[in-house]
């Protein structure tokens, strides 16, 4: 103790103290914020996957995303987007992009499962990012009621209250969610593809995401209790129906009422 108090006034003491403080706050900060960072990938990629993935990447993706996936004027950098982003974009056929447009369209996938995994492994090896979700978050055994509430607060404004999708600006749109695999829905939430905002695990916890997926599976399975849903597009399709069919019947009756009998 005496030694310490003697060195207290040493010219370097202030610097040492500052360094200690910085390391402490930095360490605490890192520990506190890890919730955002990718946890260890649950799908493990072998060195072989990464190598094959790099070959596929160079052949198919590097034109836009750059040789090292560092991005180019035509495509964003993929460092740190994580395996989840690759799995979502490639397995739904959105990437490789077929044509430039307001947004990448879903289409038949161009890479099989193994190739997708290899690509994901390569991209994941470039920097930590959201991993492919664990199986038990996708099982649809969460709480559908909680999921429904979360869906209405966070998702329904773009994807429609019945998850039937909706329009955005200049040709962009939020797709319908019926028939989309639970894994892709989860991945879309954590990665925020294209114009969708990111809903990281700090915002919507993995268990909450499981509830949302359960809700979507429930409404998918229960169908429309109120009869034909006309695409669940609300006043657009319902209005069109009643204007055409409803007014059509009214007009037909009017003509019948005023026509002469033979």
């Amino acid at each position: 103790m005496k030694a310490l108090s003697q060195k207290r006034r040493h010219p370097l003491a202030a610097i040492a103290l500052l360094l200690l403080g910085l390391m402490l706050t930095g360490g605490l900060y890192a520990a506190a914020t890890t919730v955002n960072q990718a946890k260890a990938d649950t799908t493990t990629f072998s060195a072989q996957d990464t190598k094959e993935g790099q070959k596929l990447f160079v052949a198919n993706c590097a034109t836009c995303h750059g040789m090292g996936a560092g991005g180019s004027p035509t495509g964003p950098s993929l460092v740190g987007v994580g395996a989840a982003a690759v799995d979502f974009q490639v397995a739904t056929g959105r990437m490789p992009l077929e044509a430039n447009g307001p947004q990448a369209q879903e289409k038949p996938r161009q890479f099989n499962e193994t190739q997708t995994k290899q690509l994901a492994g390569y991209i994941a090896s470039l920097g930590a990012g959201p991993a492919i979700p664990e199986e038990h978050y996708l099982d649809g055994k969460g709480n559908a009621a909680t999921g429904g509430e979360l869906f209405r607060v966070n998702c329904a404004m773009c994807h429609n209250a019945a998850a039937a999708g909706g329009a955005l600006t200049r040709g962009k749109f939020a797709p319908a969610l019926a028939g989309v695999s639970s894994q892709h829905i989860y991945e879309a939430m954590v990665t925020g593809p294209q114009n969708m905002p990111v809903f990281n695990d700090a915002n919507i916890t993995p268990d909450d995401k499981r509830d949302i997926i359960t809700f979507l599976q429930t409404i998918d399975a229960s169908g429309s209790p109120g009869g034909a849903d006309l695409g669940s597009l609300g006043p657009v399709s319902e209005g069109l129906f009643i204007w055409v069919a409803g007014l059509g019947v009214v007009i037909a009756f009017t003509i019948w009422l005023t026509s002469r009998t033979s």
Partner: peptide
């Protein structure tokens, strides 16, 4: 909500 949890691109209601 912690400021650090709001990553770029996030939207919180």
């Amino acid at each position: 909500i912690k400021a650090a949890d709001v990553t770029i691109g996030s939207a919180y209601h």
